[in-house]
Amino acid sequence: MADRTLQTTAPGGKPAGRRPFDLKRQTGFSEIAWFCLFVLYAPIAVLIVFSFNDNRSVTLWTEFSLRWYRSALNNQGIQNAAMISLQVGAVATLVSTFFATLAALATTRNERFRGEGLVYAVINQPLMIPEIVTAVATLALFALIKQLTGVGGIGYLMLAHTVFCIPFAYMPIRARLEDMNLTLEQAAADLYATPLQVFRRITLPLMMPGIVAGAMLAFVVSFDDVIITLMVAGPGETTLPIYIFGQMRRGITPETNAVSTLIVLLSVVLVALLFFFGKRRR
């Protein structure tokens, strides 16, 4: 607001000589901000550009080609890993979003209760502990259980993902519920809706954007995870990030760029949907 009025005072929009005094400006800050954006995006841009490079080199440009995408999509290892990622992500997303929805319903729209702080601490616990510690600790627990029961399988990996997805799913759902006007539920009850009908007709539809956002975040977080999966996953449970992590350590080809570009694209589409969808709704 203020800088607009200041700008319009300059005749013809172009100040002669000195720039008009803008009280919000700090010297050099805008340059740093643009530099920050450059730093954040330049490496990704390089990665994407060279995924279309015909050459084997990942940094010397020769010719545009889609051959690395073809080779990535035909790679049996990548196909299997993507399948595992989708399975683990789907299960972790469904379970964690369901649990987080229940928890959000219990922690909002009520008077404060004893133990509320502790509940928040427990739900956010996966965010507070360094991931590598969670990873090795979970490994230790699962190894113990496997030793005691002899039961193995991909369920362990799904369970581990569910745990760290819960806080990510919980946050937007809770935010949505806290924004919600409690009078709406009272209005519905006033208009003869039973508690169950109030939930189905009012509460659930209104919290749906939060649930969708929570589920999307949970999926992105699960799909991107490296450290916990690296520790917990057994043989034959290689997810996509673990697969390309292996590629990166062995020696890189533009195929890695191509897969990476696809994963980045998936995250960007999901998050962009979320961001602009959420903005419009409000």
Binding site: N181, T183, Q186, A187, D190, A193, T194, P195
Partner: peptide, 20 residues
Amino acid sequence: LPPHRRPVNTVFQQYALFPH
């Protein structure tokens, strides 16, 4: 009686219209 079993209706201060 709970609100939904009372044959009275309310016009709320901020209207509380269902936005969806």
